[in-house]
Design a protein around this nucleic acid. Structure first.
Lengths: 249, 249
DNA sequence: AACAGCGTTCCATTATTTAGAACAAAGGAA
DNA sequence: TTCCTTTGTTCTAAATAATGGAACGCTGTT
């Protein structure tokens, strides 16, 4: 193990965590290293532009942030989500899918699926478009849209089953609860036989980018089952968000 | 100089710059290091969570971003500016960004963006560096630098288009006008097709901390349009300054 | 089945890091 | 001001940790 590297990273982290610049002595005592050692590490980090001396102390530069920004800007939701979704499906054995919202059409588009092994299961093709107001992923994503975008929705929405929330006001009330709960559910609002739950995935800027959903045939959609699945769903969604660099909480 | 630390940072940067995971051998040849050396460095970086193995290769994690985000979140500008920027973009429907100046490199670093909804719009990645002397935000920030810092600039600066102010004296004259006007503009000085305007944001001590800029494709960059946008830009910048506790005027 | 390429492990050699003391420079107290 | 404390910086011998070549096991290919 390259102990020098570890020490350098420790110094860097300590400096990044401090809201004020730190001196050599302060860092040395705080990290239990010798003064001259810390000094050399700082010089090395400074030579690569990671830290900079200011008024006899040292502070981190924006280089770390720039590197990090480079990384997160390249991350792709579907790619990052795949292993997490596979783990989720292994746990609950129901089909998981990842969808994005097309607000111009008020529809969700499925961008990635992981199928369950159940003989009876909900089918969903990648690229498939579904009205947003009557599926779990769509409602989750709608719930985090800005209020003015929601007010722009038509008074009456398409109605697919008796359960569809086709009146805007009823939908808005439901969305409010979803926002507070951190997840959405659906029982036969689009197709009589299909329900599910979903939670929002956020990117490095904290912006909602997709929703992670579980789709379940109504016959298996019992409350006690869902209450087991939902915490796992939420955990998976926030794990994906975390991997994308989303600010915690 | 801690050569091991430098090597580790080089590995980290190479990994961050690559859009795909890299193998030990690939990294070793690319950086001119021995295979076992790279392997050990990767193990060390992995033990601290900076990189992670995936399918017999290595990739960077979002740890760098987490560290970097700590740094930027400490600049309260970013938080305070977001809602103001969103309002500005809602008004003018052009991409707004917030940039800080790195005087050691005479470059600006974009720390926050709010994109417009226009189909044709300037694309700028967060964390991106741009030469300060040929973009609006950079010129705005340069214009409020102390005179001695400006005198230290080289006689001739990099030239990107025929419009670039590449001679120091011409630049200094432009900066003087910017300082008097309270805003800067740019028409194709960096990229032929892109222009914009910017104004300085000040902290509670009245010190310049960032610049708020609008970036506009030249095709929409007509004087009468800009004259409508600029007052709003200035208002937004001073609103952010006010929120930071800057003394008025 | 043989091969080529990869990541990984091992270890003696060697170059590097280390800690302490000495030095210089800055800041505060008298 | 002058003295004294505390800080950042430099230096060096001693010791430690990093190095790279060779060997290993594994995977996928020909």
């Amino acid at each position: 193990m390259d102990t020098t590297v570890v020490k350098a990273l420790t110094v860097l982290e300590a400096l990044a965590a401090s809201r004020t610049p730190l001196g050599v002595t302060e860092l040395a005592t705080r990290l239990g290293l010798s003064k001259s050692n810390v000094h050399r590490l700082l010089q090395t980090l400074a030579s690569r532009g990671y830290v900079a001396p200011v008024e006899h102390r040292y502070t981190v530069t924006t280089k770390l942030w720039e590197l990090g920004a480079q990384i997160v800007s390249r991350l792709d939701v579907a790619q990052v989500a795949t292993p997490v979704m596979q783990r989720l499906v292994a746990e609950v054995d129901e089909t998981a899918h990842l969808s994005i919202l097309d607000m111009t059409a008020c529809e969700v588009v499925s961008i990635h699926n992981v199928e369950s092994t159940q003989p009876v299961r909900a089918y969903s093709r990648i690229g498939q478009r579904t009205p947003a107001h009557c599926v779990a992923t769509g409602k989750a994503l709608l719930s985090v849209q800005p209020p003015e975008a929601l007010r722009a929705l038509p008074e009456e929405l398409p109605r697919f089953t008796p359960h569809t929330l086709w009146q805007r006001d009823a939908l808005l009330a439901a969305l409010e609860k979803i926002r507070a709960d951190g997840y959405s559910t659906n029982v036969g609002e689009w197709r009589e036989q299909v329900g599910g739950a979903a939670a929002v995935v956020r990117d490095h800027g904290g912006r909602p980018v997709a929703a992670l959903g579980l789709t379940v045939p109504v016959e298996r959609l019992e409350p006690e089952v869902m209450s087991r699945y939902i915490p796992r769903l939420i955990a998976a969604a926030s794990e994906i968000s975390r991997l994308l660099g989303a600010p915690s909480r």
